[in-house]
Amino acid sequence: MSEVEVPAPLPRPAQPGLGSVLVGVFGGVLAVIRKDLLVEWRARAQVVALLGFAVVVLLLFSFAVGPDSMALARHAGGYLWLALLLSSTLLLARSMQNEVESGALEGLLLVPVPAASIFYGKALANTVLLVLVALVALPVDLAITGAAIVSPGVAVAVVVLGAAGVAAPGTFYAALTARVAGRQLLLPLLLFPLIVPALLGAVKATTLAMTGDPMGQVPSWLTLLLAFDLIYWSLCGLLFEKVVEA
């Protein structure tokens, strides 16, 4: 075999400036969010089914605990987040299945959108959907348990930060397991232990938003959630390319 002919170096295309790179990354993220939300909108029957699932889980919790209204109200925050967590694995798995089903992921990799943008786009879309599930599940939770929200601002912050805390590692693990046999089981097995801190923070802060916060503990829990989100949104964004190109 003769040695490889190395062609003369080509003139490189003009290096894009930082500004246009950022626009490219950001534009890619927006395009991916738009795509994911469009797919969910067109298949909205499945989203409705997901909302139904969350509600059913809440009902089951209330049956399991029984008609003890004190206990129900005390644990309303915990029920809410467990319902969200159980729904989230279905949502996350489906979002990645849409990509794998017809080879769309390969198509996505070939367009000039960086892998990190694909991750952030999908994770943000999943955050939006989880917030939507929470918006439906929260009133049902309140109705079933008899709890009430005393500080709505805190509740909104917790829902958004908590949904983001589930969505980032969830999207990441869904991609990691998308082509593995037994993914339906693996995704929750990987995800649930990891998000214990986010779950603790979200449940505590939600409970405080329902019962009031005389000791001023809410900021600590929100900080914990924020720190968890920052760490995993960065780390997963960094590692995502390795996962999808493998």
């Binding site: 490219g24 534009g27 890619g28 395009a31 991916v32 738009r34 795509k35 469009l38 797919v39 067109r42 298949a43 849409n98 089903e101 017809s102 080879g103 769309a104 390969e106 198509g107 996505l108 367009v111 000039p112 959108v113």
Partner: peptide, 24 residues
């Protein structure tokens, strides 16, 4: 390829517009 790389839940129009926005 045989795996067509499009989204099954989207129409032809949606798929084209999604693709175009991804390509910028």
């Amino acid at each position: 390829r045989h795996a067509h790389g499009m989204y099954e839940d989207l129409s032809a129009r949606d798929n084209l517009s999604v693709r175009a926005s991804l390509l910028g």
